[in-house]
Design a protein around this nucleic acid. Structure first.
Length: 924
DNA sequence: ATGTTCACG
DNA sequence: GACGTACGTGAACATC
């Protein structure tokens, strides 16, 4: 799909006369039918013309925006003016009619916007878009050879004849009509047009018309002074048919105020999805065209005879134990310009792990392992320390290679390698990451671990870490592995990475996802490696105090629970709780879990507590403190790195379906905030002495994106005016004034706003608000009525998912939803809700990724020594010297709120709240 | 290993 | 009328 991109003086907008293309394609080419008998000649011609146009438009004439515009079948407003309009035109040929729909599909396959409007001709829409673009200062090119469009030519607007590759500007119009573009309609009004049955004035052709208009200035003057004309026939004809001339002028004048069905900004040109395009062409059975386009896009099946899938021979890998050998490998890497790199360490956490060795691969099958930190496993020496290059010398040789801007480094989950190298002051660049190449093309499902990728793409199962190091208690650290085994394992990883890159990198361009990868994925490993290495300080004493406090509260709640139950049991066991509540006590059970047991989750217990029972209340209290103690207070204390005294999370870049990050070991994206007790945990995240924590978060980013994407004017206006969006929703929906609004009414509106983002259902909303399904249904219908655009958006996303198997964010990230076509209706409906949610959640994820990619450079440029520490989906957390707080707040606001630019210009502002304080808790 | 619950956006 | 149901995560604990 095309992207949304602002139109300004740097833009070059192409408007393609789709209907003109169709008739030209139909008449210029011999009839052609598909094997099933469907006529497809015009489709082929159309595709060939579009392809040629796109191919010709490289370089300085490249479009920033492009759309294909069609006539809409049926009568137009011109027929109301004059029922003879186009009356002479025969019905389109029988074998062309079924091709109209296919040609719209073809436009979609090229990822081009397909524009038409009932009651208007393509020319009117072109006139309207041309005017809008010109008003925005853009250049406009109209791809058409229709002379009726020449009236639109001016300083900014030219016509492009797609077949003759000829630009038609002012000079060429004068050549054709004998008058400049602004007088073309007057000439056409006089001359008429037999094809369109525009009457004009009998006896006057283009030449005479041009001569008359040039002499008298314009049509009205000419008609007013018709008496002065010397030639009697001409004079009489003009006087007699003056009305016809005026009518004709109305007929030939293109309506630049035609309503435009899609905003000009949405025409942003983007790489086509090569797979989809080639798939369409192949389905149409255009053999030659398919092959030509396949070749040009580098599409087609991966080269299976290439080196990448040749069998892997681990015994061919080399162990590098001398500087001379290392230099030789570095020279080979330099010659290849590309080198796959993998580090081996003694632990999983990059912030704690020590470097054990480095492997390199320069061509498929040609890889080596450079042991640097092995402490044992020398087979020749009965298990002692093997011969190795001194670590400092080896890294001294590797650093220039890894940092050479002309050598591309390849890694799998390269964030890890970057972090390990950074601790040795090596900062590899540029790099590609095969994990991210895979993620951006295939999405999160399926996994992007090296083993999974290798099996998927190479049909090869690499040596497993378990095979090498064992597992459980007997697990060895990699530095204890003998060099022969270590080499086979480590060098294979580099080899596999290189081979994967040879397959995944070309596939990226074929899918049209290079920009997504380069802007939203590739910058992140370096940024996240820095964040992870920075870590965040936690106040151990505070966590210890909290742990005791929570233990105390748990004990109290436990006693209260035993008292109420009249028996002792494990309050942590949902099964035992269910047995007591719904068995022994005989309380009314609510929901069941999916395995059929009684549910005892918070919603159920709350319901029972509200009915006056003591046990569920005690259990809720116990659960709250148990959670806070074990998941937070105790776990965070254990997660402190003794070397740094800080907590270092790991951010996963390729874990979610929508492009969000995830955080683990420990997860710092779910630190409590919603309850007072929970907030105390957040208070334990502190800044170093003399420093502050700065937290900056997007305000309502998902609702803002919904307003933009679905084009909900009322929501957009509210955001522009800085209104309380939930209150405004409530006011619209329930017709209550903003002043003195009942908080419950606002709460309902808020639940609906969130529900909409999640792909609302009456059931879900009813559940959430504790109302009946009928009531919930009424709310939803009312919402759709008050905010037109939302329902259309939802239907459009579902349709897109069904048609393509994926939906996209504003920035082009794809979210695959294969189960949208599942035969199981509940699977399908789940996918439909994902189709609604994913473009919104995904766009928000894209935006904060863009902000993160820019933030380090922005801080450096501003001379700040602040560091970015955490990302929590719509929030960035920094640590800064106290005296930088104000500057950092201003900078974070700027970078975050401007992050969509220049690719996307949102129609709503992105507000960012930012605050500095001694703790993360206080910075909210 | 799987299910349940609950912390966050 | 029936599928089932709000979107995206990770961690702890119980239970098999």
């Amino acid at each position: 799909m095309a992207v949304t991109r602002p139109v300004d003086a740097q833009s070059h907008v192409y408007l393609v006369d789709g209907s003109g293309f169709i008739f030209r394609a139909y008449h210029a080419l011999p009839a052609l039918t598909r094997s099933d008998g469907a006529p497809v000649g015009a489709v082929q011609g159309f595709c060939a013309m579009v392809w040629k146009l796109l191919k010709d438009l490289k370089g300085e004439d490249a479009p920033t925006h492009l759309a294909v515009i069609f006539d809409h079948s049926g009568v137009t407003f011109r027929n109301a003016l004059y029922d003879g309009y186009k009356a002479n035109r025969p019905e389109p040929p029988e074998d062309l009619v079924p091709q109209f729909a296919l040609i719209r599909d073809a436009t979609g396959a090229f990822d081009l916007p397909c524009i038409e409007l009932e009651g208007y001709e393509a020319d009117d829409l072109i006139a309207a878009y041309a005017r809008q673009a010109a008003e925005a200062g853009a250049r406009v090119s109209i791809a058409s050879s229709d002379k009726d469009l020449m009236q639109l030519v001016n300083d900014q607007v030219t016509l492009l004849d797609p077949m003759k590759v000829r630009r038609i500007g002012r000079e060429e119009v004068i050549e054709k009509f004998g008058v400049p573009p602004e007088k073309v309609i007057d000439v056409q009004a006089l001359a008429g047009d037999s094809v369109d049955n525009v009457p004009g004035v009998p006896g006057i052709g283009i030449k005479t018309a041009a001569q008359l208009i040039t002499e008298y200035g314009d049509l009205d003057t000419l008609l007013a002074r018709a008496e002065e004309i010397k030639q009697p026939k001409r004079r009489e004809s003009l006087i007699e048919h003056a009305e016809n001339a005026r009518l004709s002028r109305q007929l030939v004048t293109l309506k630049a105020d035609t309503p435009t069905p899609a905003p000009l900004e949405s025409f942003g040109a983007a790489d086509p999805d090569g797979e989809r395009l080639v798939g369409f062409l192949r389905a149409m059975e255009f053999r030659t065209l398919t092959r030509r386009i396949e070749e040009a896009l580098g599409a087609g099946p991966a080269d299976e005879t290439g080196d990448a899938t040749a069998p892997i021979d681990r015994s061919a890998y080399k162990t590098v134990q001398t500087l001379e050998a290392l230099d030789a490998w570095i020279a080979r890497a330099r010659a290849a310009r590309v080198v796959a790199v993998d580090v081996e360490t003694d632990a999983l956490s990059a912030s704690a792990a020590r470097l054990v060795g480095v492997s390199l691969a320069v061509r498929p099958g040609e890889a080596c392992y450079i042991p640097l930190g092995h402490s044992g496993g020398d087979l020749a020496d009965g298990g002692g320390r093997p011969e190795q290059i001194d670590m400092a010398s080896a890294l001294g040789r590797l650093k220039p290679l890894l940092e050479d801007p002309a050598i591309l480094k390849l890694g799998q989950n390269f964030k890890y390698d970057l972090a390990v190298f950074a601790r040795h002051d090596i900062h590899p660049a540029p790099y590609d990451d095969t994990m991210l190449l895979s993620y951006v093309q295939e999405g999160a499902s399926g996994g992007h671990g090296m083993d999974a990728l290798s099996e998927r793409h190479l049909g090869h199962k690499p040596m497993s870490f378990k095979e090498v190091c064992g597992s459980g208690k007997a697990q060895k650290s990699f530095d204890e592995i003998d060099l022969k085994t270590a080499t086979q394992y480590a060098a294979e990883d580099a080899d596999v990475t290189l081979r994967l890159w040879e397959i995944l990198k070309p596939a990226l361009a074929r899918s049209g996802l290079s920009t997504v990868y380069e802007t939203l994925e590739r910058p992140l490993p370096a940024v996240l490696a820095r964040m992870e290495l920075s870590g965040i300080k936690v106040d151990v004493a505070q966590l210890s105090r909290l742990s005791s406090e929570f233990a105390q509260k748990m004990a109290e709640a436990e006693e209260a629970a035993f008292e109420a139950a009249g028996t002792r049991f494990n309050p942590g066991s949902p099964k035992q709780i269910g047995d007591i509540l719904f068995g022994e006590m005989g309380l009314p059970g609510g929901k069941k879990t999916k395995s059929g047991a009684w549910s005892t989750d918070a919603a159920v217990l709350e319901e029972l507590a509200a009915q006056g029972y003591d046990l569920p209340r005690a259990l809720l209290t116990w659960r709250q403190f148990a959670k806070l103690k074990s998941t937070y207070a105790d776990a965070l204390k254990d997660a402190i790195n003794p070397q740094t005294g800080r907590v270092h999370t790991s951010f996963a870049l390729a874990a979610t379906n929508t492009g969000r990050l995830s955080s683990s070991d420990p997860n710092l994206q779910n630190i409590p905030i919603r309850t007072e007790e929970g907030r105390k945990i957040r208070e334990a995240f502190v800044a170093e002495p003399g420093h502050v924590i700065v937290a900056a978060d997007y305000s309502q980013i998902e609702l803002r994106l919904l307003a933009h994407i679905a084009g909900v004017e009322a929501l957009k206006d509210a955001f522009r005016a800085g209104q309380d969006i939930h209150a405004m929703t409530a006011s619209e929906m329930f017709g209550v004034p903003l002043e003195g609004m009942d908080p419950m009414v606002r709460r309902n509106a808020k639940a609906i706003n969130f529900g909409i983002i999640y792909g609302i259902s009456a059931f879900g909303l009813a559940n959430n608000l504790g109302i009946s399904r009928d009531e919930a249904k009424t709310y939803i219908d009312n919402y759709f009525k008050k905010f037109p655009g939302i329902a259309d958006y939802m239907e459009a996303m579902k349709a897109e998912a069904r048609e393509r198997g994926y939906v996209q964010t504003l920035f082009g990230r794809r979210i695959h939803l294969p189960s949208i076509r599942d035969k199981n209706p509940s699977m399908r409906q789940f996918a439909e809700r994902q189709a609604i949610n994913a473009p919104i959640q995904g766009a928000a994820a894209d935006i904060i990724r863009r902000a993160m990619a820019r933030m380090d450079a922005a801080m450096a440029k501003a001379g700040l020594s602040a560091r970015m520490l955490l990302q929590v989906h719509d929030e960035l957390v920094f640590e800064a010297p106290e005296n930088e707080a104000d500057a950092l707040i201003a900078l974070a606001r700027e970078v975050m709120s401007q992050a969509p630019l220049p690719v996307i210009s949102l129609s709503v502002p992105l507000d960012v709240d930012a605050r500095a304080a001694a703790t993360w808790g206080q910075a909210h």
